[in-house]
């Protein structure tokens, strides 16, 4: 972890504390689902509040809009979940989103074909992730610092490409952006939502059904143990940053569809939204505990709060931040209680 906790000086000796703590761990399986369930309850509750208070809130389209407006954030949260599960952190995602929109817009303006643009953007994001993961692993510099540098680098590269906003006029991109899919019940979603959901499914598959995914959890649980068990910890520790970089780039593409422009000041602070979504989604920042689905619900909770506040009208937008802060606190407290009981 970036900053090991110092305040938590336990009242017992470390050895005996962990021992007795573990031997008392007879609480059953649902415990690890508890935070995710809590997230889901919060989601249902906030959505319920909206439905009761505002007419037209409880419609399929409002729900679909949650996905449409947050498709890119869902993808980012997916990538962030991988990193956080290993006990790392990636501060660069927001900047990589901006860089991706910038590359896409500039390349399309230069007349590149759409498929080549997509590949370039995804490769750039993954490459940045690879570089950061390699530095973190090889030189033992804290992820916090390395990805902070990555954040500066990506944002700076945006400005290198252009200081001005570049709009996207490419017909393929425009079609993708404006195209919609009609679901039963007259609800429409965008292609971005489909891509985001595919990303979620892929992440669930990788995390739960591949050796790589299980090693991600193992590294987060105990890196020493994972290494002693002969698992490929190096590959995983670097790999999660590649995945996060890839997801940021994909999120960037979705964001460029959403905004139809590339701009250096896009997605400022979005890494914090992604981290908040993951924490509210029930993952532990110390690693090893959490689910992609939780992060997705986390994004939806953040989105619902935003929607609620915009429906309210009289409530100003800054309440969003305060409420998210309070939610973060609540979930951290919940995690503390669960960990203490273990």
């Amino acid at each position: 972890m970036v900053a090991p906790e110092v305040g938590a000086v336990p009242a017992k000796s470390p050895g005996s504390a962990s021992r007795s703590a573990r031997s008392r761990g007879r609480v059953n399986v649902p415990k690890r689902f508890l935070p995710v369930i809590a997230t889901f309850v919060v989601f249902v509750a906030t959505f319920g509040v909206g439905s009761v208070r505002y007419e037209g809130f409880a419609s399929g389209q409002v729900m679909a809009n949650l996905f449409i407006d947050n498709a890119f954030l869902i993808v980012l949260a997916v990538g962030m979940t991988f990193v956080i599960l290993t006990g790392g952190i990636d501060l660069s995602v927001g900047s990589v989103v901006a860089l991706s929109t910038m590359i896409a817009a500039a390349a399309l303006q230069a007349g590149w074909p759409a498929w080549l643009v997509v590949i370039t953007v995804l490769a750039t994001g993954s490459g940045l992730g690879l570089a950061m993961g390699w530095v973190i692993h090889r030189f033992g510099v804290q992820p916090f610092i390395v990805t902070l540098a990555g954040m500066f680098l990506a944002r700076g590269l945006c400005f290198v490409i252009s200081v001005e906003s570049v709009s996207i006029k490419d017909p393929t991109f425009r079609d993708l952006a404006t195209g919609s899919i009609e679901l039963p019940g007259g609800v429409t979603i965008t292609y971005g939502v489909v891509i985001a959901l595919v990303a979620v499914l892929a992440a669930v598959y990788v995390l739960h059904l591949t050796r790589f995914g299980r090693t991600v959890y193992a590294v987060g649980g105990s890196e020493t143990s994972a290494r002693l068990m002969g698992l490929a910890t190096t590959r995983v520790k670097i790999g999660v940053y590649v995945i996060s970089g890839f997801c940021s780039a994909l999120g960037g593409l979705l964001f460029s569809l959403y905004m139809l422009s590339g701009y250096s000041l896009h997605a400022v602070g979005m890494e914090l939204d992604a981290i908040a979504a993951v924490v509210v989604g029930g993952s532990l920042l110390s690693g090893g505990v959490g689910f992609v689905i939780g992060s997705v619900v986390g994004v939806l909770v953040l989105g619902t709060i935003q929607t609620l506040i915009s429906f309210e009208g009289t409530l100003s937008s800054w309440w969003t931040k305060i409420v998210i802060g309070a939610l973060l606190l609540a979930f951290i407290a919940l995690q503390r209680i669960i960990v203490r009981r273990t």
């Binding site: 690890r32 059904l209 050796r211 299980r214 090693t215 959890y217 105990s222 068990m229 090893g288 505990v289």
Partner: peptide, 25 residues
Amino acid sequence: VNLCANLTVAENILLGREPRKFGRI
């Protein structure tokens, strides 16, 4: 105990040499 407490018993016993089908556990 040098295992990962957050994984299942089966994973702790077999991780690294788990039975796979087309790369899927």
